[in-house]
């Protein structure tokens, strides 16, 4: 869902650019609380992973395709503020080096995929966690639901921007139906990939998953790598 140049008029692009810049500024502060010696390398890797998986479009119905956004997955893995930064880096690299997503639309894409997808995906995850079992399955269900919702949420936000500043004069209902419908399907793929990746990471290193801190038992905390290095070897 990378918006190209030309779809939205200049005032709308300037406005989303301002929203994106403000979001990144806040995220730069918020991410400091999420990142430490253990999680910072994982965050960089997660961004690279999102870039890679975004290259792999999967077919959706007849004649169209979708790819992972990754906002919800990244937020659960490394924290929401860090996820905003990771998504922004991915979008900048895609726009500048690969001409994927417009340059004047960069603020729009950061707003849709860096802000809305992360906020809706992680927000739904946080809202669902308390009502689900405190197990790995509970985490996966919450993350999968957040990932699913994040895609139509970003699509509907685009329609809102299109209503405000779309260059073409086309019926909004048609835009909403087409965008909403196809992105509900893409959301299913988003959920499937996010759950699969999160399950894999949880099975190897649950201690590195930001959103699964509540699964950690005291014994696990005691053996955290940061402390382990300083523990005398018995």
């Amino acid at each position: 869902m990378h918006v190209p140049d030309g779809f939205l008029d200049a005032p709308t692009s300037v406005a989303t650019g301002a929203v994106a810049a403000g979001t990144v500024a806040i995220a730069l502060r918020g991410a400091r609380r999420e990142l430490d010696e253990r999680t910072a390398p994982l965050a960089g890797l997660t961004a690279a992973f999102v870039f890679a998986v975004q290259m792999v479009n999967f077919p959706v119905g007849a004649g169209t395709s979708g790819h992972l956004v990754g906002g919800a997955l990244t937020a659960v893995l490394v924290g929401p503020w860090t996820a905003v930064l990771c998504m922004t880096v991915v979008l900048v690299v895609q726009a500048v080096l690969f001409a994927d997503g417009g340059l004047t639309a960069l603020g729009t894409n950061v707003t849709l995929l860096g802000l809305v997808a992360v906020a809706v995906g992680y927000g739904a995850y946080r809202l669902l966690l308390p009502v689900l079992p405190r197990t790995r399955t509970g985490v996966l269900v919450a993350a999968g639901t957040g990932a699913f919702l994040s895609v139509p949420a970003a699509a509907v936000t685009f329609v809102g921007l299109f209503a405000a500043g779309g260059v073409a004069d086309v019926p909004l209902g048609t835009v909403l139906a087409a965008m909403g419908g196809v992105h509900l399907l893409i959301g299913l793929g988003e959920a499937a990939i996010s759950v699969a990746v999160l399950a894999a990471v949880l099975s190897v290193r649950p201690d590195l998953v930001h959103g699964a801190a509540h699964l950690r038992r005291p014994a696990d905390l005691a053996s955290r790598p940061g402390l382990r290095d300083r523990e005398p070897v018995r």
Binding site: L28, A31, R32, R33, L35, D36, E37, T39, A40, P41, A43, G44, L45, T46, A47, A48, F51, A52, M55, T82, L85, C86, V89, V90, V92, V93, Q94, L97, F98
Partner: peptide, 19 residues
């Protein structure tokens, strides 16, 4: 190339920001 550039930029940024 894209993976490498993303890794350097995002990894560098998060390493700078870490506690």
């Amino acid at each position: 190339i894209g993976v490498a550039v993303t890794l350097v930029l995002a990894g560098g940024l998060t390493l700078l920001l870490r506690r």
